[in-house]
Design a protein around this nucleic acid. Structure first.
Length: 659
DNA sequence: ACTAGAAGGACCC
DNA sequence: ATCCAGGGTCCTTCTCGC
């Protein structure tokens, strides 16, 4: 309710801003948007086949599997104060993930809440991944129950697989569901098997070699026409009757269940490949999965939601199909658009993805460059089609705990200490990570969240070190609100700003080395700025001492701008003094640079830094840049005589002396 | 070795 | 049908001096 109001307030502020803008300006926005659109349009790429798979109500499904008494009643996994997920029966009552338990109880009095057992879920997850990696060894998990895969290579190989490699036992609770990994021919090792067996999931057995011989169909005439598949689409998979096995009364030595005579043959096509994968997950885990198949990750992910649960959806690999699909898709379905964005966008009549296009001028005005580009690319259905390896480890680690209101300083300190030590352990077990920034997070009983952070000169992962900082932050907070004692319902400690890996440092160094002598480009860049300064565009008389990297936008009046930033189209940076086009000087305003001068490059922002007299850098137009402020231009190249490049730089300007 | 840091949010599972 | 756990990532805004 309070939040509602805040969103509303923000929206009305934005609307006012929008109302104040001229027709001409909106037209300019439209032109910019169109330009971007046409460059994006070039980027369609249908050469890869991306699959996104997502387990159905994962945690809940695992619990139901392991405790059949839960199978037919509304249940959820989580705690009284918070549910992680719910089963489909509970969902019919409106019980959802991320819902406090007591609310869920109101919706559904009979709801059974099972505590979460992460260790169990990760064990199951490993089994699932062992299957997935046979279709794409570079499969990238997004979480325990979700992953992207690139099926392109598998599909090529798949054409050469014989029928028996694409044949698997039909699912049955009471018969052997074991399947030989080797049959697929993709994974030669027994990696999948060993990890599945060794992970403590007792009911995920596998065939040994002997059974492999017996259970595999060898006669390709046994294809039956009756396909039973849970998908709504027609399946090319066929159930086979294996006469060899049906006369075999022996049991599987691994799972002690009779062999299943019914077999399913999966086709070589994509859809059957994905069906097969889901089926194998089902065999191994007794859990169902849903999947999406498309030309890129964005689309695949959206598609996996289409026929949930236990279904799959393929979006044809054509521009028309993609655009048609996106057209009526509610923006809320777009990854990255949450509740807040949904409401904000709705306020500007953006409800489905084609509205991104329809209102592109307004959106261009309202949103940062990165965001806007994302919206448009979503509208077009563009997305990454190469799976990126998550090379650099975690960016931060944290431990937090919720409790009933606590205000006793000693208690709080004790807790803080515990959390710090826990975090230290986590860091040590995570490749002995060492970080420099400690953040204390607290949530008041009013649910207001605060974070307080402090960076250390040197990285650490020592528990007491962490505690010292965290406790200091905590103490400050307690002092700060001394009137009424700090009453908390949550405390957390986070470490971030990890010391970068060797490889990364190496890379930076190389970049810098190649730029250590000013290039021609660099020189002309400076000249250009100098010329700019001297031109009538910039009022020479304005009080020294700072020059400007690029001239200010007149898109919005300086001083009333609030939200402009970001890499790419716009650049926000800390500016000391800026001139607007009329030559007035405005001090210390964050501003928007609409145009980077020639010489702006898409490379390392520091690559243009002058090694002797100034620091000038430009923002990569690449939207992967983090924050413009951080990497942004040290915006003045400043003339003169006196020392520090950064006017705010503390007196120990030696720290910048490297330049 | 490092180009700022701190605070706050949105969002994801 | 309401403000929520705990682990994260990423983005944005503000402050900083004289």
């Amino acid at each position: 309710m309070k939040k509602d109001k805040e969103i509303l307030k923000k929206v009305t502020a934005l609307k006012e801003e929008l109302a104040a803008v001229s027709e001409a300006h909106l037209e300019a926005c439209m032109n910019k948007a169109n330009a971007l659109l046409s460059s994006l349009y070039q980027q369609y790429d249908f050469t890869r086949t991306i699959v996104h798979m997502d387990m159905d109500a994962f945690y809940a499904a695992v619990e139901m599997r392991d405790n059949p008494s839960l199978a037919n009643i509304p249940m959820a996994v989580g705690g009284e104060d918070m549910l992680s997920t719910s089963n489909y029966i509970a969902r019919r009552y409106g019980v959802r993930a991320a819902m406090p338990g007591f609310i869920a109880r109101k919706l559904c009095a009979d709801l059974v809440i099972v505590p979460t057992d992460m260790a169990k879920y990760s064990a199951v997850s490993r089994v699932i991944r062992s299957v997935l990696s046979q279709y794409d060894p570079n499969m990238t998990p997004l979480s325990l129950d979700e992953a992207y895969m690139d099926f392109t290579d598998h599909l090529v190989k798949r054409r050469e697989l014989d029928d028996q490699s694409r044949t698997f036992p039909e699912f049955s609770e009471t018969m052997c569901r074991c399947e030989p990994e080797e049959r697929l021919g993709v994974v030669s090792s027994t990696e999948g098997i060993s990890s599945a067996v060794g992970d403590g999931v007792a009911d995920v057995p596998n065939l040994n070699e002997d059974n492999l011989q017996n259970s595999v169909a060898t006669d390709d005439t046994r294809i039956l026409p009756s396909a039973t598949n849970s998908d709504t689409e027609p399946s090319e998979a066929r159930i086979m009757k294996d006469t060899t096995v049906s006369t075999d009364t022996s049991q599987c030595p691994r799972c002690n269940m009779p062999h299943n005579p019914k077999r399913i043959l999966f086709d070589v096509g994509v859809e059957d490949a994905v069906r097969e994968m889901r089926h194998r997950i089902h065999l191994k885990t007794r859990l169902t999965a849903s999947a999406g198949i498309a030309a890129n990750c964005l689309l695949a992910k959206i598609c996996s939601d289409q026929n949930k649960p236990n279904g799959q959806y393929m979006l044809p690999f054509t521009v028309d199909a993609v655009q048609d699909f996106m057209k009526d898709l509610p923006v809320r379905k777009v990854p990255g658009v949450g509740k807040v964005s949904e409401r904000q966008l709705a306020a500007f009549d953006v409800k489905v993805c084609s509205d991104f296009y329809k209102h592109r001028d307004v959106l261009y005005f309202l949103y940062s460059g990165g965001m806007f580009e994302y919206f448009l690319s979503v509208y077009l259905g563009l997305g990454a089609n190469r799976l990126s390896k998550n090379e650099d480890g975690p960016k931060s680690k944290s431990v937090e705990r919720t409790f009933r209101g606590m205000s006793d300083p000693d208690q709080l300190r004790t807790l803080c200490h515990e959390l710090s030590l826990e975090l230290a352990e986590d860091l040590k077990s995570a490749k002995n990570l060492q970080g420099k920034t400690v953040t204390l997070k607290i949530k008041l009983v009013t649910f207001e969240v605060k974070t307080r952070s402090q960076s250390l000169p040197t990285a650490t992962n020592d528990g007491e070190d962490i505690y010292n900082v965290a406790n200091q932050l905590l103490t400050t907070e307690m002092k700060n609100c001394s009137s009424k004692p700090l009453k908390l319902r949550l405390m957390g400690v986070r470490m971030s700003n990890f010391t970068t890996s060797d490889s990364k440092q190496q890379k930076l160094k190389v970049i810098r080395d190649t730029n250590s002598t000013p290039s021609d480009k660099r020189i002309s860049f400076l000249d250009k700025i100098e010329a700019e300064r001297k031109s009538e565009k910039v009022n020479q008389s304005c009080n020294e001492p700072l020059g400007l990297l690029a001239y200010m936008s007149t898109d919005k009046p300086i001083g009333t701008t609030s939200n402009i930033s970001n890499a790419g189209r716009n650049v926000s940076t800390k500016l000391s003094s800026v001139w607007d086009e009329s030559g007035d000087v405005t001090t210390r305003k964050t501003g928007k640079i609409i145009e980077l001068l020639e010489g702006a490059s898409n490379t390392d922002p520091w690559s243009l830094a002058d090694s002797t007299s100034s620091s000038v850098a430009t923002i990569p137009s690449d939207s992967t840049v983090k924050t413009a402020t951080k990497y942004g231009p040290l915006d003045f190249y400043r003339s003169s005589k006196s020392g520090a490049l950064d006017p705010w730089a503390k007196d120990d300007s030696s720290s910048l002396g490297g330049f």
